[in-house]
Design a protein around this nucleic acid. Structure first.
Length: 200
DNA sequence: TAATGGATGTTCT
DNA sequence: GAACATCCATTAT
C-alpha cells in the first residue's frame, strides 16, 4: 500500500481525522514491522478549541502542532502514558489528530510482549495502550511520517460506517463532535463509560 | 456492572 | 501548585 502523502495531512483537521480511519499505522522497530488499522481518532484544532494543547499559544511542548503537516506529535500525559498525534493543516496553523485505537495486524506477538497483555482486542485500544504496544515514546516526537522509516501511515481499505461523538476525557470543548470511530468495530476503545457516544 | 481513586511526570499559571 | 487528550485494580451496588 502507498504511503499517505503530505497533501493528505494538509487539510481541515476533522477531515483528516475522519480520513485516517481505515488507514494503516506502521511502526518499524529493530527491523520488525508492526502495524494496525486505525479505527478511532480525535481532532484537536487551532486557537478556538479550548481542549487543544495549542489553545493557549505556542509552547515548547506543542511546537509540533504549529509545524508542517504529516509529522508525529508525541507527548507524555497523566504521569504514565504517551499519546500519538499526527499534525495537520498548514505550517503556522495548529492542528493534530490523536490516534486513539488501532486494530492490530502485523507484529501482534511483539505488541503482546510490549503490553504484557494477551487479549488482541485490548492491545491497542486507547491512546496510552497503543503507544505502549507499538513502543512509541518521546524519541518519535516531531518525526516526519511522510519520510520516516520508523513510523508512517499507509493508505488502506475504506472504513465502513463512521460514528461521531464528543471527545473522550476532555473537560472543555465538549460541544465539538470531533471523535471519529469505525462503527461496530470491537477494537475501538470504550472511552469513559456513560459519556455520549455510540449509535447502533 | 458502575463508580472511585491511585500511580505518576510534565507543563503552565 | 494545579491540572492534565489515561489506565486499571479495587470497591461498592
Amino acid at each position: 500500500m502507498p504511503r499517505r502523502p503530505r497533501s493528505f495531512f494538509e487539510r481541515y483537521t476533522p477531515d483528516v481525522a475522519r480520513g485516517l480511519l481505515g488507514s494503516r499505522l506502521v511502526r518499524v522497530l529493530r527491523g520488525a514491522r508492526m502495524s494496525g488499522v486505525i479505527v478511532e481518532t480525535e481532532a484537536y484544532r487551532g486557537s478556538r478549541d479550548p481542549a487543544s494543547h495549542a489553545f493557549r499559544g505556542r509552547t515548547g511542548r506543542n511546537e509540533a502542532m504549529f509545524g508542517p503537516a504529516g509529522h508525529a506529535y508525541v507527548y507524555f500525559t497523566m504521569g504514565v502514558h504517551y499519546c500519538l498525534n499526527v499534525t495537520t493543516e498548514g505550517e503556522g496553523t495548529p492542528g493534530a489528530v490523536l490516534i486513539r485505537a488501532v486494530q492490530p495486524e502485523e507484529g501482534v506477538g511483539i505488541m503482546r510482549k510490549n503490553r504484557g497483555v494477551d487479549d488482541v482486542l485490548r492491545l491497542a485500544a486507547g491512546p496510552g495502550n497503543l503507544t505502549r504496544a507499538l513502543d512509541i515514546g518521546r524519541a518519535l516526537n516531531g518525526e516526519d511520517l511522510v519520510r520516516s522509516d520508523r513510523i508512517f501511515i499507509e493508505a488502506g481499505a475504506r472504513a465502513g460506517a463512521i460514528g461521531v461523538s464528543s471527545r473522550v476525557g476532555v473537560a472543555s470543548g465538549r460541544s465539538f463532535k470531533w471523535r471519529f470511530f469505525v462503527k461496530g468495530n470491537p477494537f475501538v476503545s470504550k472511552g469513559r463509560p456513560s459519556l455520549p457516544s455510540q449509535n447502533p
